[in-house]
Design a binder for these strands. Structure first.
Lengths: 138, 138
DNA sequence: CAGTATTTGCAAATTTGTCGCAATAATCTA
DNA sequence: TAGATTATTGCGACAAATTTGCAAATACTG
């Protein structure tokens, strides 16, 4: 994991610094995080500006990317680390869950775009609703 | 159209005011707009703060909703006015095109979510790539 | 049309994201 | 591994985006 990180950084000529490792640590194996969350979790270690710069750099290096959810956006590691997937966003508790990609669905999405004379390069599917926990009768 | 607008507002106990009509007019029948665009188009008629408040109110009343595209978000009228559809976002020219919903695709999305023990209430699919115009050989 | 409740504009305050630059840490070379 | 070179960080100042309080204006009700 760290090796992949190092490799992706090196590919772009970036170095693996302490702040970058910290930000990566905050993202690894967690649900997508908002900027505020990342900044909060690293507040005593890294400056706000560095967090923004790091995220931007991670995006350029294909390490992390933005996920648009409702108003805000959240950051998560790319499919290199997480595999391609979509998201289930619970409108009750605000959590975001990964939904493993379904090959048939992927194909259909590309097909539908192509039929509209559009050359698809990627997509993002966000499903809104209630997670298992929030739809339980209280 | 205006009647539907009035009805949706009344349903929530909101009144149909001049500023709300103006904002509605800016959104009706157009591509999704960014906040900056809406504010710009109404600058000499409505205060910025009112635009923000109106959009928020439109969201609550199911009149308009936010569409997340790349970094920014855009506003468009809901399916009540526009029908359910997805979006093709051209990464070259930045335009956003509607993609009429495909029933089979819709079904598959709901199914996939349900299988993950999630109760889907809606979804948003953004496809990124090149529009017909931008993929032409120049 | 008056009375009441809602909504607006304005100005100020927050929040969010960016930038320049000197200090610091990482990388490279010998 | 020391020393030179380059990339990166923290800090403070900015700039942009969004929110809020409140008095004045507008819409709705009877």
């Amino acid at each position: 994991m760290i090796n992949t990180l190092r490799a992706l950084l090196k590919q772009k000529g970036y170095s693996l610094t302490k702040p970058r490792l910290i930000v990566f640590g905050v993202l690894a194996g967690k649900e997508p995080q908002t900027m505020a969350e990342i900044i909060g979790l690293t507040a005593n270690k890294i400056d706000r500006a560095t967090v923004y710069r790091t995220i931007e750099l991670f995006e350029q290096a294909g390490i992390a990317h933005r996920l648009n959810i409702g108003f805000k956006y959240k950051i998560e590691l790319t499919e290199v680390f997480n595999g391609h997937h979509h998201h289930l966003h619970c409108t009750a508790c605000g959590r975001t869950f990964p939904l493993p990609a379904n090959p048939m669905l992927e194909t259909m999405i590309d097909t539908v775009a192509s039929k509209a004379d559009f050359a698809p390069r990627g997509h993002q599917l966000e499903i809104y609703g209630l997670c298992q926990n929030c739809s339980k009768p209280s």
